[in-house]
């Protein structure tokens, strides 16, 4: 098993905000192209703020910790602020991730961005920073199937 930081272990053992939001304002689901895993984020938006955020994760220990961290980072933030969350930021907040687990942090940020995009499309609004943030960050791993 990889050696994870204490922060990762804390979030893995006690993930925050796990769950689904029945009447979510935005839902983002993303599959991991590297190992075939999956993450779904749900957001509830009020006055341009992420009032509530929940997620479900099918993946490794890092992926679970990442989703928990992302949910913590964006809860209560404005949509613009939430869009500034990047995979490297998540990894840093988790006190680092093993190199071959960095792609799991992409998963978290991407799923969240997708949920925000889903909200924007549904409500026909434009959020600064959305389009240019939606592309995934460069992945180190080739997708092998």
């Amino acid at each position: 098993m990889p050696v994870y930081s204490e922060k990762v272990m804390q979030h893995f053992m006690n993930p925050h905000n796990v769950g689904e939001i029945e009447d979510a304002d935005g839902v983002g689901e993303i599959g991991n192209p590297v190992c075939g895993d999956m993450m779904t984020f749900y957001i509830k938006v009020k006055d341009n703020r992420i009032e509530d955020v929940k997620y479900k994760t099918f993946g490794c220990g890092a992926a679970i910790a990442v989703s928990s961290m992302v949910s913590d980072l964006v809860k209560g933030k404005t949509l613009e602020e939430a869009l500034t969350v990047t995979p490297s930021m998540v990894a840093k907040e988790l006190e680092g991730l093993p190199k071959n687990k960095l792609h799991c942090s992409n998963l978290g940020a991407q799923a969240l961005h997708k949920a925000i995009k889903n909200y924007a499309i549904k409500n026909k609004i434009d959020i600064p920073g959305l389009t240019d943030k939606e592309e995934p960050e460069e992945d180190e791993h080739a997708c092998e199937t």
Binding site: G19, M38, F58, I64
Partner: peptide, 8 residues
């Protein structure tokens, strides 16, 4: 499983 999107 409680936190798995596939399970739900």
């Amino acid at each position: 499983r409680q936190m798995s999107p596939l399970y739900s």
